[in-house]
Simulated assay, not measured.
Amino acid sequence: MPRVSEAHLAARRQQILDAAARCFVRNGFHQTSMQDVIKEAGLSVGAFYRYFKSKNELITAIAGEKITAVTGVLDGLLLLDPMPSVPEILERLLELIDDAAVEDGTIRIAVQVWGEAVHDPEVGALVAEIYGRVRDRAVRTAERAQETGQIPPDADPAGIGAAFFGLVQGYILQRILLGNVDRQLYMNGVRALIG
């Protein structure tokens, strides 16, 4: 029997993740069965279970994929010299959120994962690890901003990073719960607060 290429395996895995994301956005995490995802992906049960054994594995992979995009943007911005201002970095992240809200709606999955993390220790540990990576980048952003004089030398980078991270989560919640939040209005408010 011929060996399946790594590219084929990666493409099939992505096919499943895309199908799961569509189902979770459309029906919610709890209202989506594994059978729904298998049908959406157009695969046999055996082919599907070769890649994922549970909805938690699917949600873990989707969340990891989305957070990797966010951390990649932050890492790129942190390498710039001079580093953009903290509000400019925040605005770039909010643009990603807006894109995800419009393109495929996967930002809605984030809120579902947060809710699931409260009740499921496995998901909770995953969320803490994944979102901890983003908060770590936010702390590094504050440290770099401190080095360049954007924030006072006696400010606590960990506290600023936590607040920065909270601003991103707050924007996500407002996008999902209130609808189309004006990013510029939000950023004007942030600038006024930190002004």
Rank of each mutant, 00 (worst) to 15 (best):
M34N: 04
I38G: 04
F24C: 07
W114K: 14
L9V: 09
G149P: 02
L90E: 04
G195H: 03
G124F: 10
Y186N: 06
S44T: 15
S33N: 00
L93F: 03
D136L: 11
I176A: 02
T148L: 00
V37E: 08
L167Q: 13
S44F: 09
A117G: 08
Y186W: 15
V111M: 14
G115Y: 10
A128H: 08
R22Y: 09
I97E: 04
L177S: 03
T32I: 07
E88A: 15
A69G: 09
T148E: 10
D104I: 14
P121A: 14
G170M: 10
Q169Y: 06
G105V: 13
L185R: 07
G124N: 11
R135A: 15
A10Q: 10
R12W: 00
L173E: 01
A47F: 01
R191A: 03
L173N: 00
L126D: 11
V25D: 03
R13S: 05
L90F: 05
A163C: 05
H119F: 15
I109C: 12
N56L: 14
L74Y: 02
F48N: 03
L94M: 09
I130T: 13
G28A: 08
V134F: 05
I62C: 04
G132F: 10
A110C: 09
R3W: 04
Q174P: 00
R108D: 12
A100K: 14
Y51F: 13
L9P: 00
G179M: 01
Q174W: 02
T71W: 02
L177I: 01
E40K: 10
Q112M: 12
I194L: 14
I172G: 00
T106R: 15
R137E: 12
A101F: 09
A128V: 10
R191Y: 03
